[in-house]
C-alpha cells in the first residue's frame, strides 16, 4: 500500500518555500493600533527527500507545530508554497486536498484528546479507511488487525474505548490510525511529549522501526533535542517562527553553529557523568520575545551573549556555512573540528 510514488530519488517529496502563517487578531479598539495579525511562522523553507526524517525543534510558541500543520493545510498557510510530490497544494480544490490526505497523515501530541472518546479503537483505526473508501467491511477488519499488530497492540482490544488505554498505548492507536491508509508522508507533532519518559523511548523506537519498514518520510516536531537524535536524518531549529539552523543530524549535535542551538544542546543531559560535570551549561536569560512584537534584526539577539549592533540592524539570512549546515547568524560558532581561528565574516 505504501509503494513509492516518486521513482526519481533525487526529486524531493516535499518542498516548502517561504511558508508563512499569520493568525488575524481581534480588533480591540476602533482606533485599531497595533498589529493586525500574529505571525507565527515566517518565511520557512526546506525540502525533504523520500524516506528522510527531518526534525523541527523549538520552544513552545516558536511556530513548529504551526509549520507542520500548515503543510497539511490545517489551517492553510497565509503565504508561501508547499509542493508535495511536485503538486502545488494551494492550487488544489478542497476535494483534491482531501484525496491527497491519503498520502499525508498526522500524529498528535495528546493521544487522548486526538481521538474521539465515543468511538472504539477499532472504529478509530477504521475511520480513515472508510473516509477514503478503501476495502470492503471484511477487508477493513483484516486491515485493523494487521495495523494493531504492526504497532504492538493486541487485536483483541479493538472493541475497547480510549479511556481504557494508557497514554503510550493510545499513541500507538494514533500511529495505527495514521498508517491505515498507507501514507508516504507523516507529520508527527510532538508525539511523545505527553508521555512518560519510559514510554517515550518505546514510541520513538516504534516510529524508527515503522519508518524503516514502510519507507516513511517523517516530519518530526519536538521541543527537546534529546528525543529526536535517534530518529532524525536532519534537524531544523526554529526560533520565533524562523528556521535559525538546519543541519545533518550528527553534524548539528557535534558542532552546533547557532548560539541558540548551542544553548539548547547544553541543556541536553549527557549520559557520562564526568562529561556532564566537566561542561558548563549555557543558561539563556529571559524568554522568547512575543511574536506580536518581534525584535528588529536577528530574532534571537535579545537573549544572545554574542549580540552586536549589527544583529539589531540586520536580520541574518539562513545561509550555508558548510555542506551539511545552514545557519542564520552573523557570528556563527566555529565548526567544532576546526581551530577557532578568525571569526567568520558577517555577510
Amino acid at each position: 500500500m505504501t509503494g513509492s510514488h516518486t521513482d526519481d530519488a533525487s526529486r524531493p517529496l516535499l518542498e516548502v518555500e517561504d511558508l508563512s502563517v499569520e493568525f488575524p487578531l481581534p480588533r480591540t479598539s476602533l482606533r485599531n493600533r497595533g498589529p493586525r495579525a500574529l505571525r507565527a511562522v515566517s518565511d520557512v523553507s526546506f525540502t525533504m527527500r523520500q524516506g528522510e526524517t527531518l526534525s523541527i525543534v523549538g520552544e513552545s510558541g516558536s511556530g513548529k507545530s504551526t509549520t507542520g500543520r500548515a503543510i497539511l493545510r490545517l489551517p492553510p498557510p497565509t503565504s508561501g508554497s508547499v509542493r508535495f510530490d511536485g503538486i502545488e497544494m494551494s492550487s488544489l480544490a478542497p476535494r483534491q486536498v482531501r484525496d491527497l490526505r491519503r498520502r499525508m497523515q498526522m500524529i498528535f501530541q495528546d493521544p487522548l484528546a486526538s481521538v474521539n472518546g465515543r468511538m472504539s479503537v477499532g472504529d478509530i483505526i477504521e475511520e480513515p479507511l472508510i473516509i477514503h473508501g478503501l476495502g470492503r467491511a471484511a477487508e477493513r477488519r483484516a486491515r485493523i488487525v494487521e495495523l494493531m499488530e504492526l504497532v504492538g497492540l493486541k487485536p483483541g482490544w479493538q472493541g475497547r474505548y480510549p479511556h481504557e488505554f494508557s497514554g503510550g498505548q493510545l499513541q500507538r492507536v494514533g500511529i495505527a490510525r495514521a498508517l491505515a491508509v498507507g501514507p508516504d508522508f507523516i507529520v508527527a507533532d510532538e508525539p511523545v511529549s505527553a508521555l512518560d519518559v519510559s514510554v517515550q523511548a518505546q514510541v520513538i523506537n516504534l516510529l524508527a522501526r515503522l519508518k524503516q519498514e514502510l519507507k516513511l518520510t517523517l516530519l518530526f516536531i519536538a521541543h527537546d533535542l534529546s528525543v529526536v537524535r535517534q530518529l532524525s536524518d536532519r534537524v531544523a531549529v526554529v526560533y520565533l517562527g524562523r528556521i535559525i539552523e538546519i543541519a545533518e543530524c550528527d553534524t548539528l549535535y557535534a558542532s552546533p553553529r547557532h548560539p541558540y542551538t548551542k544553548a539548547l544542546l547544553s541543556a541536553v543531559p549527557l549520559p557520562d557523568p564526568k562529561a556532564e560535570a566537566a561542561r558548563t551549561p549555557i543558561l539563556l536569560e529571559g524568554e522568547m520575545p512575543s511574536p506580536l512584537s518581534p525584535p528588529s534584526g536577528c530574532p534571537f539577539r535579545t537573549r544572545c551573549w554574542k549580540a552586536q549592533p549589527l544583529c539589531a540592524a540586520e536580520r541574518p539570512p539562513l545561509a550555508p556555512v558548510s555542506p551539511q549546515t545552514e545557519v542564520a547568524c552573523h557570528f556563527p560558532e566555529p565548526a567544532a573540528d576546526t581551530v577557532p581561528a578568525g571569526q567568520l565574516q558577517p555577510q
Partner: peptide, 17 residues
C-alpha cells in the same frame, strides 16, 4: 478547536462526517 476534530480533518473527513 479540539484535537480529535483536527485529527478527523487531517484524515480527510468531509464536513458532514
Amino acid at each position: 478547536n479540539r484535537d480529535h476534530v483536527l485529527a478527523a480533518r487531517s484524515m480527510g473527513a468531509g464536513n458532514l462526517r
